[in-house]
């Protein structure tokens, strides 16, 4: 099941963890990424913390922790090849995995239909 934030992140539940990345819409708005900096594995984060820095040719942006929890794994492949995020944002271009402090927090986020309406509004 996919969930979405207003910051254009997607979250996909996978066992005890969620996988986090940014949406196709976000990558289209950002343009070609040339730099990605990921958090340290094991870091405890609060919702809204700046956890990832991404830079396109034109500008830098921060990616915020979508919910409270702990980072368990990061996708170092996108550090070596930031273009992967543009090419495949929903699969190979994922950013990190995290364990949520409270898995029911997911229910507060948008579902696919809700996100589609959010982007169109």
């Amino acid at each position: 099941m996919l969930r979405f934030t207003e910051e254009h992140e997607w979250l996909k539940q996978d066992g005890d963890e969620v996988v986090v990345g940014i949406t196709q819409y976000a990558t289209e708005q950002l343009g070609d990424l040339v730099f990605v900096e990921l958090p340290e594995e094991g870091r405890t984060v609060a919702k809204g913390d700046e956890v990832v820095v991404i830079e396109s040719v034109k500008a830098a942006s921060d990616i915020l922790a979508p919910l409270d929890g702990q980072i368990t794994e990061v996708n170092s492949a996108i550090v070596a090849n930031p273009a992967m995020v543009n090419e495949d944002p929903m699969e190979n271009g994922w950013f990190f995995r995290m364990i949520l402090a409270d898995p029911t927090d997911l229910d507060g986020l948008m579902d696919e239909e809700g996100y589609r309406k959010f982007v169109e509004s």
Binding site: G31, D32, V34, S56, V57, K58, N86
Partner: peptide, 9 residues
């Protein structure tokens, strides 16, 4: 600022 092919291309 850019066309669909993007700034890099």
């Amino acid at each position: 600022v850019q066309y669909p092919s993007g700034i890099l291309k």
